[in-house]
Simulated assay, not measured.
Amino acid sequence: MSERMHTTPLPVQPEPKGWPRVKKFVSSRFRSGAWRARKALIPAATSAIAAVAAYAFASIIFGHSEPYFAATAALISLGFGRDPHIRKALEVSIGVTLGIFVGDTLQTLLGQGYWQGVIVVFVTIILARFIDSGVIFTTQMSIQSVLIVLLPIPPEGPFSRSLDAVIGGIIAIAITMLTPVSVRREAVAGFRELFTSITGVFRELSHALESHDSRGGWVALIEARGLQTKIDAVRAELAAADEHATYAPTRRSARQDLQEMSRTLEKTDLAVRSLRIIARRVITVIDEVDGKTEAVDDLERMASWFGDAGDAVAVLGRSVSEPVAPGRHRSLSVARDALGSVTTKLTPRNLGAGTLHGEALVMMCRPMMVDFLEATGSDHDEATSYLPTLGN
Protein backbone atom coordinates (compact mmCIF):
# COMPACT_ATOMS: atom_id res chain seq x y z
CA MET A 1 0.00 0.00 0.00
CA SER A 2 1.44 3.32 -0.97
CA GLU A 3 1.90 5.92 1.74
CA ARG A 4 0.26 9.29 1.48
CA MET A 5 2.79 11.91 0.57
CA HIS A 6 2.93 15.11 2.62
CA THR A 7 4.14 18.17 0.82
CA THR A 8 4.97 21.59 2.13
CA PRO A 9 2.98 24.31 0.40
CA LEU A 10 5.05 26.53 -1.82
CA PRO A 11 5.64 30.02 -0.49
CA VAL A 12 3.56 32.73 -2.11
CA GLN A 13 5.70 35.13 -4.07
CA PRO A 14 4.99 38.72 -3.01
CA GLU A 15 3.87 41.19 -5.62
CA PRO A 16 6.71 43.45 -6.76
CA LYS A 17 6.53 47.07 -5.66
CA GLY A 18 8.00 50.30 -6.83
CA TRP A 19 10.28 50.23 -9.86
CA PRO A 20 10.15 46.39 -10.30
CA ARG A 21 6.36 46.61 -10.54
CA VAL A 22 6.58 49.38 -13.13
CA LYS A 23 9.20 47.41 -15.05
CA LYS A 24 7.01 44.29 -15.04
CA PHE A 25 4.00 46.30 -16.26
CA VAL A 26 5.97 47.98 -19.05
CA SER A 27 7.50 44.67 -20.13
CA SER A 28 4.09 42.99 -20.24
CA ARG A 29 2.57 45.84 -22.25
CA PHE A 30 5.53 45.83 -24.63
CA ARG A 31 5.22 42.09 -25.32
CA SER A 32 1.46 42.29 -25.91
CA GLY A 33 1.91 45.38 -28.07
CA ALA A 34 4.61 43.69 -30.14
CA TRP A 35 2.35 40.66 -30.63
CA ARG A 36 -0.53 42.86 -31.82
CA ALA A 37 1.78 44.79 -34.13
CA ARG A 38 3.05 41.60 -35.77
CA LYS A 39 -0.51 40.39 -36.29
CA ALA A 40 -1.43 43.76 -37.83
CA LEU A 41 1.28 43.87 -40.49
CA ILE A 42 -0.85 42.53 -43.36
CA PRO A 43 -4.09 44.37 -42.42
CA ALA A 44 -2.11 47.62 -42.00
CA ALA A 45 -0.46 47.24 -45.39
CA THR A 46 -3.81 46.40 -47.00
CA SER A 47 -5.50 49.45 -45.44
CA ALA A 48 -2.66 51.76 -46.47
CA ILE A 49 -2.72 50.54 -50.07
CA ALA A 50 -6.51 50.85 -50.25
CA ALA A 51 -6.57 54.42 -48.90
CA VAL A 52 -3.79 55.73 -51.13
CA ALA A 53 -5.07 53.87 -54.19
CA ALA A 54 -8.57 55.33 -53.74
CA TYR A 55 -7.18 58.85 -53.30
CA ALA A 56 -4.87 58.52 -56.31
CA PHE A 57 -7.62 57.06 -58.52
CA ALA A 58 -10.07 59.87 -57.73
CA SER A 59 -7.33 62.50 -58.15
CA ILE A 60 -5.69 61.22 -61.35
CA ILE A 61 -8.61 59.67 -63.24
CA PHE A 62 -11.41 62.06 -62.23
CA GLY A 63 -9.28 65.14 -61.53
CA HIS A 64 -10.69 65.77 -58.05
CA SER A 65 -8.55 68.26 -56.17
CA GLU A 66 -9.01 66.91 -52.63
CA PRO A 67 -10.61 63.45 -52.72
CA TYR A 68 -10.27 62.85 -48.97
CA PHE A 69 -13.54 61.00 -48.83
CA ALA A 70 -12.25 58.41 -51.29
CA ALA A 71 -9.47 57.47 -48.87
CA THR A 72 -11.83 57.68 -45.88
CA ALA A 73 -14.46 55.47 -47.50
CA ALA A 74 -11.82 52.90 -48.46
CA LEU A 75 -10.43 52.73 -44.93
CA ILE A 76 -13.82 52.49 -43.24
CA SER A 77 -15.14 49.96 -45.75
CA LEU A 78 -12.10 47.75 -45.45
CA GLY A 79 -12.11 47.87 -41.67
CA PHE A 80 -9.42 46.33 -39.54
CA GLY A 81 -10.72 42.90 -38.60
CA ARG A 82 -9.05 39.51 -38.51
CA ASP A 83 -9.79 38.84 -42.16
CA PRO A 84 -11.61 41.09 -44.63
CA HIS A 85 -15.11 39.90 -45.48
CA ILE A 86 -16.71 40.93 -48.77
CA ARG A 87 -20.26 41.26 -47.46
CA LYS A 88 -19.11 43.40 -44.54
CA ALA A 89 -17.05 45.63 -46.84
CA LEU A 90 -20.04 46.02 -49.15
CA GLU A 91 -22.43 46.89 -46.33
CA VAL A 92 -20.04 49.41 -44.80
CA SER A 93 -19.25 51.04 -48.14
CA ILE A 94 -22.96 51.46 -48.84
CA GLY A 95 -23.44 53.09 -45.44
CA VAL A 96 -20.52 55.46 -45.94
CA THR A 97 -21.57 56.40 -49.48
CA LEU A 98 -25.19 56.90 -48.46
CA GLY A 99 -24.16 59.16 -45.57
CA ILE A 100 -22.06 61.31 -47.89
CA PHE A 101 -24.82 61.41 -50.51
CA VAL A 102 -27.40 62.50 -47.91
CA GLY A 103 -25.04 65.22 -46.73
CA ASP A 104 -24.41 66.42 -50.29
CA THR A 105 -28.13 66.48 -51.07
CA LEU A 106 -29.16 68.36 -47.93
CA GLN A 107 -26.28 70.80 -48.29
CA THR A 108 -27.41 71.59 -51.82
CA LEU A 109 -31.00 72.16 -50.63
CA LEU A 110 -30.37 73.91 -47.31
CA GLY A 111 -26.96 75.51 -47.67
CA GLN A 112 -24.09 75.32 -45.21
CA GLY A 113 -24.14 76.24 -41.53
CA TYR A 114 -24.67 75.08 -37.98
CA TRP A 115 -28.42 74.67 -38.02
CA GLN A 116 -28.16 72.89 -41.35
CA GLY A 117 -25.68 70.52 -39.73
CA VAL A 118 -28.18 69.70 -36.98
CA ILE A 119 -30.86 68.88 -39.56
CA VAL A 120 -28.45 66.79 -41.65
CA VAL A 121 -27.34 64.67 -38.68
CA PHE A 122 -30.92 64.22 -37.46
CA VAL A 123 -32.24 63.17 -40.87
CA THR A 124 -29.26 60.88 -41.47
CA ILE A 125 -29.69 59.08 -38.14
CA ILE A 126 -33.42 58.55 -38.72
CA LEU A 127 -32.74 57.27 -42.25
CA ALA A 128 -29.95 54.97 -41.04
CA ARG A 129 -32.17 53.48 -38.32
CA PHE A 130 -34.86 52.91 -40.94
CA ILE A 131 -32.43 51.07 -43.22
CA ASP A 132 -30.51 49.02 -40.68
CA SER A 133 -30.66 48.26 -36.95
CA GLY A 134 -26.89 48.28 -36.47
CA VAL A 135 -25.39 51.05 -34.35
CA ILE A 136 -22.15 51.07 -36.38
CA PHE A 137 -24.09 51.61 -39.63
CA THR A 138 -25.90 54.61 -38.10
CA THR A 139 -22.66 56.08 -36.75
CA GLN A 140 -20.91 55.76 -40.12
CA MET A 141 -23.71 57.50 -41.99
CA SER A 142 -24.05 60.35 -39.48
CA ILE A 143 -20.30 61.05 -39.25
CA GLN A 144 -19.91 61.23 -43.02
CA SER A 145 -22.94 63.46 -43.48
CA VAL A 146 -21.95 65.97 -40.80
CA LEU A 147 -18.45 66.24 -42.27
CA ILE A 148 -19.98 66.93 -45.65
CA VAL A 149 -22.25 69.71 -44.45
CA LEU A 150 -19.59 71.44 -42.34
CA LEU A 151 -16.64 71.25 -44.75
CA PRO A 152 -16.27 73.67 -47.68
CA ILE A 153 -17.74 72.61 -51.02
CA PRO A 154 -14.94 71.38 -53.35
CA PRO A 155 -14.37 73.08 -56.73
CA GLU A 156 -15.75 70.05 -58.57
CA GLY A 157 -19.16 70.49 -56.92
CA PRO A 158 -20.91 68.89 -53.91
CA PHE A 159 -21.67 65.52 -55.42
CA SER A 160 -18.02 64.90 -56.33
CA ARG A 161 -17.59 63.74 -52.73
CA SER A 162 -20.31 61.12 -53.22
CA LEU A 163 -18.39 59.89 -56.25
CA ASP A 164 -15.22 59.77 -54.14
CA ALA A 165 -17.03 57.60 -51.61
CA VAL A 166 -18.15 55.22 -54.35
CA ILE A 167 -14.56 54.99 -55.62
CA GLY A 168 -13.24 54.25 -52.15
CA GLY A 169 -15.87 51.58 -51.53
CA ILE A 170 -15.23 49.87 -54.85
CA ILE A 171 -11.47 49.78 -54.29
CA ALA A 172 -11.96 48.40 -50.76
CA ILE A 173 -14.21 45.63 -52.09
CA ALA A 174 -11.77 44.83 -54.91
CA ILE A 175 -8.86 44.57 -52.48
CA THR A 176 -10.96 42.40 -50.18
CA MET A 177 -11.71 40.04 -53.06
CA LEU A 178 -8.03 39.79 -54.00
CA THR A 179 -6.54 39.61 -50.51
CA PRO A 180 -4.86 36.22 -50.00
CA VAL A 181 -6.53 34.77 -46.91
CA SER A 182 -6.92 31.19 -45.80
CA VAL A 183 -10.64 30.55 -46.13
CA ARG A 184 -10.40 27.26 -44.23
CA ARG A 185 -8.13 28.31 -41.36
CA GLU A 186 -10.72 29.52 -38.84
CA ALA A 187 -13.21 26.80 -39.76
CA VAL A 188 -10.54 24.12 -39.28
CA ALA A 189 -9.61 25.57 -35.88
CA GLY A 190 -13.28 25.51 -34.92
CA PHE A 191 -13.64 21.91 -36.07
CA ARG A 192 -10.60 20.91 -34.04
CA GLU A 193 -12.05 22.46 -30.88
CA LEU A 194 -15.49 20.99 -31.55
CA PHE A 195 -14.29 17.42 -32.00
CA THR A 196 -12.00 17.70 -28.99
CA SER A 197 -15.07 18.56 -26.94
CA ILE A 198 -17.15 15.75 -28.48
CA THR A 199 -14.40 13.26 -27.71
CA GLY A 200 -14.33 14.59 -24.17
CA VAL A 201 -18.06 13.89 -23.77
CA PHE A 202 -17.59 10.30 -24.91
CA ARG A 203 -14.76 9.80 -22.44
CA GLU A 204 -16.76 11.36 -19.61
CA LEU A 205 -19.59 8.94 -20.36
CA SER A 206 -17.16 6.02 -20.47
CA HIS A 207 -15.67 7.00 -17.11
CA ALA A 208 -19.13 7.49 -15.57
CA LEU A 209 -20.20 4.01 -16.67
CA GLU A 210 -16.96 2.42 -15.55
CA SER A 211 -17.08 4.02 -12.09
CA HIS A 212 -20.88 3.69 -11.77
CA ASP A 213 -21.01 7.43 -11.04
CA SER A 214 -24.10 9.20 -12.33
CA ARG A 215 -22.54 12.55 -11.39
CA GLY A 216 -20.00 11.98 -14.14
CA GLY A 217 -22.93 11.42 -16.49
CA TRP A 218 -24.36 14.79 -15.49
CA VAL A 219 -21.00 16.41 -16.24
CA ALA A 220 -21.02 14.80 -19.69
CA LEU A 221 -24.61 15.95 -20.26
CA ILE A 222 -23.73 19.56 -19.43
CA GLU A 223 -20.73 19.42 -21.77
CA ALA A 224 -22.89 17.90 -24.52
CA ARG A 225 -25.41 20.70 -24.19
CA GLY A 226 -22.61 23.23 -24.61
CA LEU A 227 -21.54 21.72 -27.94
CA GLN A 228 -24.26 23.55 -29.86
CA THR A 229 -22.55 26.90 -29.35
CA LYS A 230 -19.36 25.54 -30.89
CA ILE A 231 -21.29 24.03 -33.80
CA ASP A 232 -22.94 27.38 -34.49
CA ALA A 233 -19.55 29.11 -34.37
CA VAL A 234 -18.09 26.70 -36.94
CA ARG A 235 -21.17 27.15 -39.12
CA ALA A 236 -20.64 30.93 -39.07
CA GLU A 237 -16.97 30.52 -40.01
CA LEU A 238 -17.89 28.24 -42.92
CA ALA A 239 -20.48 30.74 -44.14
CA ALA A 240 -17.90 33.54 -44.12
CA ALA A 241 -15.35 31.32 -45.88
CA ASP A 242 -17.90 30.29 -48.51
CA GLU A 243 -18.74 33.93 -49.14
CA HIS A 244 -15.08 34.74 -49.74
CA ALA A 245 -14.57 31.70 -51.95
CA THR A 246 -17.67 32.59 -54.00
CA TYR A 247 -16.66 36.15 -54.87
CA ALA A 248 -12.87 36.05 -54.70
CA PRO A 249 -11.39 34.77 -57.99
CA THR A 250 -8.27 33.52 -56.19
CA ARG A 251 -10.30 31.27 -53.87
CA ARG A 252 -12.82 29.59 -56.19
CA SER A 253 -10.97 26.28 -55.93
CA ALA A 254 -11.69 26.11 -52.20
CA ARG A 255 -15.46 25.84 -52.66
CA GLN A 256 -15.40 22.04 -53.00
CA ASP A 257 -13.48 21.72 -49.74
CA LEU A 258 -15.92 24.03 -47.99
CA GLN A 259 -18.91 22.07 -49.26
CA GLU A 260 -17.41 18.85 -47.88
CA MET A 261 -16.72 20.54 -44.56
CA SER A 262 -20.28 21.86 -44.42
CA ARG A 263 -21.66 18.37 -44.98
CA THR A 264 -19.41 17.04 -42.22
CA LEU A 265 -20.67 19.75 -39.88
CA GLU A 266 -24.35 19.13 -40.60
CA LYS A 267 -24.02 15.38 -40.01
CA THR A 268 -21.98 16.05 -36.88
CA ASP A 269 -24.72 18.37 -35.66
CA LEU A 270 -27.26 15.57 -36.02
CA ALA A 271 -24.97 13.16 -34.18
CA VAL A 272 -24.45 15.64 -31.33
CA ARG A 273 -28.20 16.08 -30.93
CA SER A 274 -28.40 12.32 -30.40
CA LEU A 275 -25.40 12.44 -28.07
CA ARG A 276 -27.22 14.81 -25.72
CA ILE A 277 -30.12 12.37 -25.43
CA ILE A 278 -27.71 9.48 -24.96
CA ALA A 279 -25.91 11.27 -22.14
CA ARG A 280 -29.22 11.65 -20.33
CA ARG A 281 -29.96 7.94 -20.86
CA VAL A 282 -26.54 6.95 -19.49
CA ILE A 283 -27.46 8.62 -16.20
CA THR A 284 -30.67 6.58 -16.08
CA VAL A 285 -28.80 3.34 -16.82
CA ILE A 286 -26.29 3.99 -14.04
CA ASP A 287 -29.04 4.79 -11.55
CA GLU A 288 -30.99 1.71 -12.62
CA VAL A 289 -28.20 -0.75 -11.84
CA ASP A 290 -27.12 0.96 -8.62
CA GLY A 291 -26.53 -1.77 -6.03
CA LYS A 292 -27.01 -4.64 -8.46
CA THR A 293 -23.69 -6.46 -8.54
CA GLU A 294 -24.75 -8.69 -11.42
CA ALA A 295 -25.06 -5.62 -13.69
CA VAL A 296 -21.51 -4.34 -13.06
CA ASP A 297 -20.06 -6.28 -16.00
CA ASP A 298 -22.73 -4.84 -18.28
CA LEU A 299 -21.74 -1.27 -17.39
CA GLU A 300 -18.06 -2.06 -17.97
CA ARG A 301 -18.78 -3.38 -21.46
CA MET A 302 -20.75 -0.23 -22.28
CA ALA A 303 -17.98 1.89 -20.79
CA SER A 304 -15.46 0.18 -23.05
CA TRP A 305 -17.64 0.82 -26.08
CA PHE A 306 -18.00 4.55 -25.32
CA GLY A 307 -14.23 4.79 -24.91
CA ASP A 308 -13.67 3.16 -28.31
CA ALA A 309 -16.33 5.39 -29.89
CA GLY A 310 -14.60 8.46 -28.49
CA ASP A 311 -11.29 7.36 -30.02
CA ALA A 312 -12.99 6.86 -33.41
CA VAL A 313 -14.61 10.30 -33.25
CA ALA A 314 -11.20 11.78 -32.43
CA VAL A 315 -9.86 10.30 -35.68
CA LEU A 316 -12.71 12.00 -37.54
CA GLY A 317 -11.81 15.31 -35.91
CA ARG A 318 -8.19 15.03 -37.00
CA SER A 319 -9.29 14.18 -40.54
CA VAL A 320 -11.12 17.46 -41.01
CA SER A 321 -7.98 19.48 -40.23
CA GLU A 322 -5.95 17.96 -43.07
CA PRO A 323 -4.67 20.89 -45.22
CA VAL A 324 -5.13 19.33 -48.68
CA ALA A 325 -7.95 17.33 -50.20
CA PRO A 326 -6.08 14.05 -50.98
CA GLY A 327 -4.73 13.77 -47.44
CA ARG A 328 -8.10 14.67 -45.99
CA HIS A 329 -9.87 12.01 -48.05
CA ARG A 330 -7.38 9.35 -46.97
CA SER A 331 -7.76 10.39 -43.37
CA LEU A 332 -11.56 10.36 -43.64
CA SER A 333 -11.31 6.81 -44.97
CA VAL A 334 -9.36 5.82 -41.85
CA ALA A 335 -11.96 7.54 -39.68
CA ARG A 336 -14.74 5.69 -41.53
CA ASP A 337 -13.08 2.36 -40.79
CA ALA A 338 -12.64 3.26 -37.11
CA LEU A 339 -16.24 4.41 -36.74
CA GLY A 340 -17.50 1.40 -38.68
CA SER A 341 -15.59 -1.00 -36.42
CA VAL A 342 -17.25 0.52 -33.36
CA THR A 343 -20.67 0.55 -35.01
CA THR A 344 -20.55 -3.19 -35.77
CA LYS A 345 -20.72 -3.88 -32.02
CA LEU A 346 -23.97 -2.03 -31.46
CA THR A 347 -26.40 -4.69 -30.31
CA PRO A 348 -27.80 -5.13 -26.79
CA ARG A 349 -26.23 -8.61 -26.57
CA ASN A 350 -22.75 -7.44 -27.55
CA LEU A 351 -22.82 -4.60 -25.01
CA GLY A 352 -24.47 -6.63 -22.27
CA ALA A 353 -27.59 -4.49 -22.11
CA GLY A 354 -29.80 -6.69 -19.98
CA THR A 355 -32.26 -4.03 -18.83
CA LEU A 356 -34.88 -2.01 -20.66
CA HIS A 357 -32.97 1.25 -20.25
CA GLY A 358 -29.75 -0.45 -21.32
CA GLU A 359 -31.34 -1.73 -24.50
CA ALA A 360 -32.79 1.71 -25.18
CA LEU A 361 -29.31 3.22 -24.76
CA VAL A 362 -27.83 0.85 -27.34
CA MET A 363 -30.64 1.57 -29.79
CA MET A 364 -30.08 5.33 -29.42
CA CYS A 365 -26.41 4.92 -30.26
CA ARG A 366 -27.16 3.30 -33.63
CA PRO A 367 -28.53 6.39 -35.48
CA MET A 368 -25.86 8.56 -33.85
CA MET A 369 -23.09 6.40 -35.29
CA VAL A 370 -24.77 6.42 -38.70
CA ASP A 371 -24.62 10.24 -38.62
CA PHE A 372 -20.93 10.16 -37.68
CA LEU A 373 -20.26 7.75 -40.56
CA GLU A 374 -22.09 10.03 -42.98
CA ALA A 375 -19.92 12.89 -41.67
CA THR A 376 -16.93 11.07 -43.20
CA GLY A 377 -18.54 11.30 -46.64
CA SER A 378 -20.38 7.98 -46.72
CA ASP A 379 -23.88 7.90 -48.16
CA HIS A 380 -26.75 6.67 -46.01
CA ASP A 381 -26.80 3.13 -47.42
CA GLU A 382 -23.09 2.64 -46.84
CA ALA A 383 -23.32 4.05 -43.32
CA THR A 384 -26.24 1.83 -42.30
CA SER A 385 -24.48 -1.22 -43.70
CA TYR A 386 -22.15 -1.14 -40.67
CA LEU A 387 -25.08 -1.68 -38.30
CA PRO A 388 -25.28 -5.31 -37.13
CA THR A 389 -28.61 -7.11 -37.18
CA LEU A 390 -30.31 -7.05 -33.82
CA GLY A 391 -30.43 -10.83 -33.66
CA ASN A 392 -26.65 -10.92 -33.18
Rank of each mutant, 00 (worst) to 15 (best):
T7S: 15
V22T: 08
P323I: 10
G79I: 00
A240D: 15
S27T: 11
T176L: 06
Q144P: 01
S142F: 03
V272T: 12
A236E: 14
L75R: 03
R263K: 10
L110S: 03
D132F: 03
E15I: 12
I198R: 04
A220M: 08
K24L: 10
L209R: 04
Q144G: 12
S2W: 13
N392Q: 11
T199Y: 08
R281F: 04
R21G: 11
T268P: 02
K292P: 01
E374V: 02
Q13D: 15
Y386F: 15
V26I: 10
T196E: 14
R276I: 11
E237Y: 10
V334D: 15
L339K: 01
F80S: 14
G103R: 00
P326N: 09
V315T: 11
M141N: 01
L265M: 09
A303P: 00
F306S: 01
V166W: 00
Q228V: 07
R280N: 12
L227F: 08
G377V: 07
L78N: 05
H85P: 01
L299P: 01
L373N: 04
I61P: 01
I76E: 04
E300I: 08
G111H: 08
V123D: 00
S32K: 07
I148D: 02
V149C: 09
D232S: 06
R280H: 12
I222M: 07
D290A: 09
T264C: 11
V362Q: 00
H212Q: 12
P155A: 13
S93Y: 03
I100D: 03
R330C: 07
T344A: 07
R349H: 12
A56F: 14
L227K: 03
G111W: 06
P180D: 12
Q112G: 05
R82Q: 14
Q259Y: 08
A53V: 12
A335Y: 00
A70C: 06
A271R: 02
L147V: 14
H380Y: 10
K230N: 09
I198A: 02
L238H: 11
L351R: 04
A37D: 07
F130G: 13
A37K: 07
R280K: 12
G358H: 05
F30A: 14
I76V: 15
T389F: 08
R184C: 07
S211L: 08
D290L: 04
R328G: 05
A34W: 13
S321L: 05
L90F: 13
L10S: 11
W35A: 10
Q144S: 11
M1Y: 13
E210A: 12
Y386V: 01
E382Y: 02
A220E: 08
V92Q: 00
L316M: 09
F159Q: 06
I42C: 00
P43F: 02
I126W: 14
T7I: 14
L194K: 01
E15R: 14
A56S: 14
E186M: 09
L275K: 05
V313L: 09
T7E: 15
P323N: 10
P20H: 06
P180L: 04
